[in-house]
């Protein structure tokens, strides 16, 4: 038992590799049941009048790409399918550039034109101060240019969108991996004073925290983590990475559960012996 407790951790690493790679190559196709959170989020977006302008806050970067990028893509598909317009921006360095080529592809699929049906205002530093400025004057907040330095005045969509307020936006969807994000910026600066509805696409690691904001009505709905993204992909009808990830995710969770149980059995067995 002692030997089992002191096993070189690299063996555990190897098992993780084998489980994840193995199940990705030979998926078992576990059934995906739509949860109440993803359904509510989907219904809210579906309920927007066609042509609504929606803010996509890309508040994550490469580190959380695995969880949030599939969510962004499913939501972008749904919005373009419904003929809604998208304004992309964010406070996280790299984030907006990360999603740019993917959204460009989806826009092409639905025949949407950059600058007319959607725009990428790019990453903007300053965290909450940027967001606050965006609620006053988007043009000033972005120094008058989009993410590649093109003047905003040259894009038709920006003629009808002047600030991040309910006057111009029907909804802000925040894909949020931490700070800066929902609790420190969007809730105090966009929701509380302006009551612009917020929808939160969050990493699994923040679900427990963001449930407070959902319960308090500060966000209208939540897409929780990869499982939520998988359900969302199913709802929108664009199966992608999140759905494909649920089998290995499940086995990973099962493996960690078994390790916790084994570790505790070992602990109590050896503790008894030591005593």
């Amino acid at each position: 038992m002692e030997a089992l407790m002191n096993i070189d951790r690299r063996w555990l690493f190897l098992v993780v590799f084998v489980i994840v790679f193995g199940i990705l190559i030979h998926p078992i196709g576990l059934p995906i049941v739509i949860g109440p959170d993803a359904q509510k989020a989907y219904d809210y977006v579906q309920g927007l009048p066609a042509g609504s302008v929606v803010w996509l806050g890309i508040e994550f970067n490469q580190s959380s790409k695995g969880e949030l990028l599939p969510m962004v893509l499913a939501v972008a598909n749904q919005l373009f399918k419904n003929n809604d317009k998208i304004v992309v921006s964010g406070m996280w360095q790299y984030g907006t550039e990360l999603v740019q080529p993917y959204i460009e592809n989806i826009a092409q699929k639905y025949g949407k034109q950059y600058g007319v049906d959607w725009i990428n205002l790019g990453w903007r530093p300053g965290n909450a101060t940027f967001l606050h400025q965006a609620t006053q004057d988007l043009n000033a907040a972005c120094a008058g240019v989009d993410h590649t330095g093109q003047p905003l005045s040259s894009f038709p969509i920006m003629q009808s969108v002047k600030a991040l307020t309910p006057d111009y936006f029907k909804l802000a969807i925040v894909f949020d991996a931490g700070t800066p994000g929902l609790p420190d910026a969007y809730i105090p600066i966009v929701y509380e004073p302006l009551h612009l509805p917020l929808l939160d696409g969050t990493i699994q690691m923040s679900v427990q925290e963001n449930k407070n904001y959902l319960q308090a009505g500060q966000i209208v709905a939540m897409i929780p983590g990869s499982a939520g993204a998988a359900q969302y992909e199913k709802l929108v009808g664009v199966p992608g990475q999140a759905l494909a990830s649920q089998d290995p995710l499940s086995l990973g969770a099962l493996f960690v559960t078994l390790l916790v149980i084994l570790g505790n059995i070992g602990y109590f067995a050896t503790r008894g012996k030591k005593a």
Binding site: R9, Q62, S63, G66, F255, V260
Partner: peptide, 18 residues
């Protein structure tokens, strides 16, 4: 960037056991 952050999956597995 994404691979460096994903390394933590392994350490959290090992921590769960130990």
């Amino acid at each position: 960037d994404s691979t460096v952050f994903a390394l933590l999956a392994f350490y959290i597995t090992s921590a769960s056991y130990r």
